[in-house]
Measured scan of single mutants.
Amino acid sequence: NQASVVANQLIPISTHLTLVMMRSEVVTPVGIPAEDIPRLVSMQVNRAVPLGTTLMPDMVKGYA
């Protein structure tokens, strides 16, 4: 099972991601792979992401 990136807190819209905001967890459905966490740092979310939500490629500007 592959770990995905999950929000560690509420991430407001247009926030630049930091390591503190993300954790890796095995979830269904599978989202952005956990090994991409370093790549996600300083990218922006294009919507509010609630605590515990799996980050999907379409939620992060410039990821997909």
Rank of each mutant, 00 (worst) to 15 (best):
N1K: 08
N1R: 04
N1A: 15
N1F: 12
Q2T: 13
Q2W: 10
Q2M: 11
A3G: 13
A3P: 12
S4A: 02
S4C: 05
S4L: 01
S4I: 02
S4H: 01
S4R: 02
V5E: 02
V5C: 06
V5P: 00
V6C: 05
V6S: 02
V6K: 03
A7E: 01
A7T: 10
N8P: 01
N8D: 11
Q9E: 13
Q9S: 12
Q9Y: 14
Q9C: 09
Q9T: 14
L10M: 13
L10E: 15
L10R: 10
L10S: 15
L10F: 13
L10T: 12
I11C: 03
P12K: 08
P12R: 08
I13V: 14
I13C: 15
S14L: 13
S14D: 15
S14Q: 12
S14C: 09
S14W: 15
T15V: 09
T15D: 03
T15E: 09
T15L: 04
T15A: 14
T15S: 11
T15M: 09
T15R: 06
H16G: 07
H16C: 14
H16R: 12
L17D: 03
L17N: 01
T18W: 03
T18G: 04
L19F: 13
L19E: 09
V20Q: 13
V20D: 12
V20L: 13
V20G: 13
V20P: 12
V20N: 10
M21V: 03
M21G: 02
M21S: 03
M21K: 01
M21I: 03
M21Q: 04
M21C: 04
M22T: 00
M22K: 00
M22V: 06
R23D: 05
R23F: 04
S24N: 08
S24G: 15
E25V: 10
E25K: 06
E25T: 06
E25L: 08
V26S: 10
V26M: 13
V26F: 14
V26Q: 11
V26N: 10
V27R: 10
T28N: 11
P29S: 04
P29F: 04
P29E: 07
P29W: 04
P29Q: 05
V30A: 10
V30F: 09
V30W: 09
V30E: 15
V30M: 13
G31C: 03
G31Y: 02
G31K: 00
G31E: 01
G31T: 00
G31S: 02
G31I: 00
G31N: 01
I32L: 05
I32K: 00
I32Q: 01
P33W: 10
P33V: 08
P33L: 09
P33K: 08
A34K: 06
A34E: 10
A34S: 13
A34Y: 08
E35C: 14
E35T: 14
E35H: 11
E35M: 10
E35P: 07
D36V: 07
D36N: 11
D36C: 11
I37S: 03
I37C: 05
P38E: 09
P38M: 09
R39G: 08
L40N: 00
L40K: 00
L40R: 00
V41Y: 03
V41I: 10
V41R: 05
V41L: 11
V41M: 07
S42E: 08
S42A: 14
S42F: 13
S42I: 03
S42R: 08
M43R: 11
M43F: 08
M43Q: 08
M43D: 04
M43C: 10
M43P: 01
M43E: 04
M43G: 02
M43W: 06
Q44Y: 08
Q44I: 11
Q44R: 10
Q44E: 12
Q44P: 06
V45F: 00
N46R: 09
R47F: 07
R47Q: 08
R47V: 15
R47Y: 08
A48V: 14
A48N: 15
A48H: 11
A48Y: 11
V49R: 01
V49F: 03
V49D: 03
P50D: 10
P50S: 13
P50V: 07
P50T: 10
P50N: 12
P50K: 11
L51I: 12
L51H: 13
L51K: 13
L51M: 13
L51Y: 15
G52T: 03
G52E: 04
G52V: 02
G52H: 08
T53G: 11
T53R: 11
T54H: 01
T54G: 01
T54D: 02
L55V: 06
M56G: 04
M56T: 12
M56A: 07
M56W: 05
P57V: 06
P57C: 09
P57Q: 07
D58Y: 11
D58A: 09
D58N: 14
D58E: 12
M59T: 06
M59S: 06
M59G: 03
M59A: 09
V60T: 03
V60Y: 01
V60F: 05
V60L: 07
V60S: 02
V60D: 02
V60R: 00
K61Y: 13
K61N: 13
K61E: 15
K61G: 09
G62N: 13
G62Y: 08
G62C: 12
G62V: 04
G62P: 04
Y63L: 06
Y63F: 10
Y63A: 03
Y63V: 04
A64S: 13
A64Y: 06
A64L: 14
A64R: 12
A64E: 14
A64P: 10
A64H: 14
A64N: 12
A64Q: 15
